[in-house]
Design a protein around this nucleic acid. Structure first.
Lengths: 239, 239
DNA sequence: TGGTATTTGTCCGTATGTATC
DNA sequence: GGATACATACGGACAAATACC
């Protein structure tokens, strides 16, 4: 499984930045220097740098150089969001986790479901409600719709473990693009029944549309998070 | 002000997707076709497509093509976040807006301020508290720290209009990279005094670190949003 | 102040690999 | 197996912003 050259360079530079070999506010070696160092073309170096810019690790300036703007504030410990599953998230943070399925049904999308999921009318789907526990506390309530023609043979047992592991291992399917919308809403009775709200009268509602490698939107999920456990990071640049 | 070729192609394709000339789930013309159409190199076409992938407009698949996955759900009408100022946001949505400065002071960063802003100890800063009104309702409370050596000559009057307009027009300074962290917190007495919370007992706290083109982190802001008015969009892809 | 070197930004052409049809 | 399509990589040329002397 040979990695590509630009990914190797990207990861090497990233590690050097994280380990302060290249320090905050310092300039990286020039592109031409890196070309010699990694024995590759300038385009390849530039591609690696472009990824670091997207990650908010460095910032380039025309005629001047590439400046490190990475600061460690434990982004990795939390970092919800991204295209990461609940199980992966829990594992990475060494937290005990569990999922309980409280509804599992199969149905056909009608106009009403289409209106809020954008899944075409007539498509057959699994509809689930699941409660996610972290360290024994119920912190997320998921309302899922999965297309049956993509997520074939889903069962409640699988849904209590990891649907994404099943997709990847059994069906050779993967989530590629995830589009998300986040809002905060007042709690419903259902939220209050199932979640540990800790005094909050609101939940963070993350609505996701998820596409597989064929460009099919195979999942629509509304995740209702208890506010106390929700953290989201993001970095943008302009120009 | 001549735009670059790949930006022109990127914007042209983007418009064609938004106007359904290239439809949802359809494949774009192949890269080689687009090369002829735009009379440019394949690299340039690929660069334009790469930007559309980042925007969540299309998804590429090796050996198959570039598929449109854009769906219009009024992303443009709201879309807080990004590197957009409050004033720009209000203008774009045709909302009446206003800002009131409730604290304006100049001070020197000590250990305590450094700990939560990451601005180096000893740096002189402006410290402001501002309340932002949308359609007459107080919806955001900002706690700002600006470096005086970058944001020279800031006054309360400027802060009631638009600091970013002042930066751009008078000081030729621009925000380039913004790093954000979002959490939900219980309201403080100050929140309750100044904001229209509409029954919520929480606020969305967005902590931002903002860098200018020289890589200097010149602003640290904590924005406390009333939950009812907060919307955030995001798209990610993996692999 | 001004000219030169350095550095990043854009663009082109070509070759090869690999997945899909 | 052959054609098509995207992915990676190389090398070169010139422009534009900045730094240096």
């Amino acid at each position: 499984m040979p990695k590509t050259k630009y990914i190797e360079i990207y990861e090497d530079l990233k590690h050097k930045i994280e380990q302060n070999i290249y320090e905050y506010q310092q300039l990286l070696p020039s592109e031409n220097t890196l070309v010699k160092e990694y024995d590759c073309s300038r385009n390849t170096v530039r591609r690696a740098i472009g990824n670091l810019v997207n990650d908010g690790y460095v910032q380039t300036k025309h005629g001047q150089g590439v400046r490190v703007i990475y600061q460690d504030f434990k982004q990795n410990e939390y970092m919800f969001g991204e295209t990461e599953s609940f199980k992966e998230f829990a594992r990475r943070n060494h937290k005990q986790h569990e999922t309980k399925v409280i509804l599992f049904e199969e149905l056909t999308v009608d106009e009403e479901i289409h209106a809020h999921t954008l899944i075409p009318v007539g498509v057959e789907v699994y509809h689930l409600k699941r409660v996610r526990y972290l360290e024994g506390k119920p912190v997320i309530m998921d309302h899922n719709y999965f297309r049956k023609d993509v997520v074939k043979g889903l069962t409640a047992e699988i849904a209590e473990d990891s649907i994404y592991q099943y997709l990847d291992r059994e069906l050779d399917q993967r989530a590629v693009t995830a589009k998300r919308k986040m809002v905060v809403e007042r709690t419903t009775e259902e939220d209050e029944t199932y979640l540990n709200l800790d005094g909050f009268n609101s939940v963070v509602v993350v609505t996701s549309h998820i596409f597989n490698s064929d460009g099919v939107m195979f999942e629509h999920t509304q995740s209702r998070h208890t506010p106390g456990n929700f953290v989201f990071f993001d970095q943008t640049r302009r120009k």
